[in-house]
Design a protein around this nucleic acid. Structure first.
Length: 571
RNA sequence: CGGGACGUAGUUCAGUUGGCUAGAACGCUCGCUUUGGGAGCGAGAGGUCGCCAGUUCGAGUCUGGCCGUCCCGACCA
């Protein structure tokens, strides 16, 4: 490709609004251009990189035995209703109508579509397992797009869906995809950490994210230094050590407590440790029930875990008015003790205790009345929670389940693998296969996704210097960036010779044939675009015996005879 | 959805208490010079000042509404 003909030249100035490194470099170097917030044009250079990432993924998916196909982008809304996902993902699902008024969802993920195509085509146990995948544009009406390609509203995703006769068979494929993803990201030059995560609106019981550690990412997770445990903050487990469990249970008493509503106010007034105080957080779920979460004072409630324990999809904080007028308690003085007798008769309240409530004796905390506190509150004796479980937020410094210290990390989630189990097949009619005994049985499923644009941006986040991008060879838009310095006839002839020679050897080459452009500008552009090998043909190089060859990111420059140019590239 | 910032040439920006024909730099086009780290001189093209309404003799500038963009947040007793 002649640079003079390329659409999407480098830019000297870009918008002040662009902050993220990958966004800046990809824009300046002419790989992408913004359409509207969160939607991007991939210019010819960007498209080449995108295609190469796709190729690596496709090779590995095929090697893993998956089959490529494609579904329509417009999904009949009926399908999403079947699994009730119009509600759980309503905030980001985009919808359109056709001329007859039929409703469609613009696909943001395609579980229903794949289940639909499989059930329509009737399979038996002999056809299973199978893993079907596609590359397609996904639409997500994100509340806020950010960071260039890192969080967008429209992007290409590789999404795969596997179908199995049972859990045991699924687990083999989960491992297979885990290994495949590890290979894909390794080939793309990315170091990934596999992090336990929450399934969210996708459904299912567990999943793992492939995360590249970077401050540019939005994914927060905790891990041990040795990497033996890594989990997203939404699901991270930790050891809750006993504090004063040998203490004798004292008699519960009510005391005066003229204090403010915050946890620290209680600590200061009573001169007791924070961990001995009960933290009460009151939520309202999608059914209008009140959910009282109680936890040891030094810990925080993790809403994701709480949603799982209570089995709800939506939680919001109760307002001060609701606390007073409906629950008949007092903001800052809520207590599980006797709260069920206080609340309005027609309202329900569910009390959920974190298991840390069993690591402390003789708690203190509010008394459901303004300026009154209770001392020596003990679980089972003074109140009985409806549910007990782990609803605590892990923090750095805590101990992992095996007892190792946790550190917190930020990273970019480039891919994930999900166990779906019977989540979809149990909600969708006829999502079944015929088993050996001739009876119908629901599929056991998994799904697996990789965002291509985000992966591309992540590569740039990780691989660049002050001059520009340094593409790994496997995804570089071209292998060689040929630069001609000077416009004399002789130089042109020599440069053309190199260009033609490389092309005839099937080397992808970008030839900077621009006239009247200074050497400095050509070098600067080459460094910015980040092609792995730079070859310079100039008066100086010809005097030295041929063309200069230099690798991007290295200082060493070699001189190679033009007649032998392709041999040096290891072809 | 809440808070903040902003919207003027292709891009980055300036534009005074409202005032005359709206500016600069970069980029682009043409000419000459230059050619190893973002060159020089000269000439030129390029604008519905986000949109709509209002105030005014007069609006890029003031007021209201709308649209769009960016950043932070949407997490606690």
């Amino acid at each position: 490709m002649r640079y003079s003909r390329l659409f999407g030249k480098t830019l000297k100035t870009i918008s002040r609004d662009i902050v993220m490194k990958s966004h800046k470099l990809l824009t300046r170097a002419g790989f992408i251009s913004e359409s509207t917030a969160g939607r991007y044009f991939f210019l010819p250079l960007g498209m080449r990189v995108h295609d190469k990432i796709m190729k690596v993924i496709e090779e590995e998916m095929d090697r893993a035995g998956a089959q490529k196909m494609i579904t329509p982008v417009l999904h009949p809304l009926e399908l999403w209703k079947e699994t009730n996902r119009t509600k759980t993902t309503g905030f980001e699902l985009m919808k359109v109508k056709d001329r007859r008024g039929a409703d469609f969802a613009l696909g943001g993920t395609a579980e229903e579509m794949f289940v639909d195509v499989v059930r329509k085509n009737g399979v038996s146990y002999k056809d299973l397992p199978m893993n079907l995948y596609q590359f397609s544009t996904k639409f997500r009406d994100e509340l806020r797009a950010r960071g260039g390609l890192l969080r967008v509203r429209e992007f290409t995703m590789k999404d795969a869906y596997s179908f199995h006769v049972d859990e045991e068979d699924f687990k083999k494929e989960y491992k297979n995809m885990w290994d495949t993803y590890s290979r894909i990201f390794k080939r793309l030059g990315l170091d990934t950490v596999v992090v336990e995560s929450d399934n969210g609106y996708i459904g299912g019981e567990y999943c793992h994210e492939f995360v590249v550690i970077s401050d540019a990412g939005e994914s927060r997770f905790l891990m041990t230094e040795d990497g033996s445990y890594a989990a997203h903050e939404d699901v991270a487990k930790f050891k809750k050590v006993g504090m004063n469990i040998d203490e004798k249970e004292e008699e519960m008493v009510e005391v005066e407590a003229k204090r403010g509503p915050k946890m620290e106010d209680g600590v200061e007034l009573h001169k007791k440790p924070l961990w001995q105080q009960i933290k009460d957080v009151l939520f309202v779920d999608e059914h209008g029930r009140f959910i009282l979460a109680i936890i040891r004072g030094d810990l925080d409630v993790n809403e994701t875990k709480l949603k799982h324990v209570v089995d709800v999809v939506d939680l919001r904080h109760a307002s001060d008015d609701e606390i007073r007028d409906v629950v008949h308690s007092e903001p800052g003085f809520i207590s599980p003790v006797g709260i069920k007798d206080l609340i309005c008769k027609d309202k329900k309240i569910v009390v959920i205790a974190d298991d840390s409530m069993r690591t402390v004796k003789n708690f203190y905390g509010g008394a459901n009345k303004k300026n009154k506190d209770l001392f020596n509150v003990n679980i089972d004796r003074d109140f009985k929670p409806d549910l007990e479980g782990d609803i605590a937020m892990a923090e750095k410094g805590y101990l992992s389940p095996e007892g190792k210290k946790l550190v917190d990390k930020k990273g970019i989630e480039v891919g994930n693998i999900f166990q779906l189990g019977l989540h979809y097949s149990s909600r969708m009619k006829d999502a079944v296969f015929t088993d050996k005994d001739g009876k119908e049985k629901q599929f056991y499923m998994g799904c697996y996704g990789i965002g291509l644009g985000r992966t591309m941006a992540t590569i740039v986040e990780m691989m660049s210097d002050e001059k520009g991008i340094i593409w790994p060879e496997i995804v570089a838009p071209y292998k060689v960036h040929l630069v001609r310095l000077g416009d004399s006839g002789d130089l042109k002839t020599k440069a053309e010779e190199v260009y033609e020679k490389l092309k005839s050897c099937n080397v992808e080459v970008l030839y900077d044939d621009r006239e009247d452009v200074s050497a400095g500008e050509k070098f600067a552009d080459a460094d910015l675009i980040g092609v792995p090998i730079r070859i310079v043909v100039s008066k100086k190089s010809l005097l030295a015996g041929g063309a200069e060859v230099k690798k991007r990111g290295e200082e060493k420059i070699g001189i190679v005879e033009i007649s032998r140019i392709e041999k040096v590239l290891g072809l």
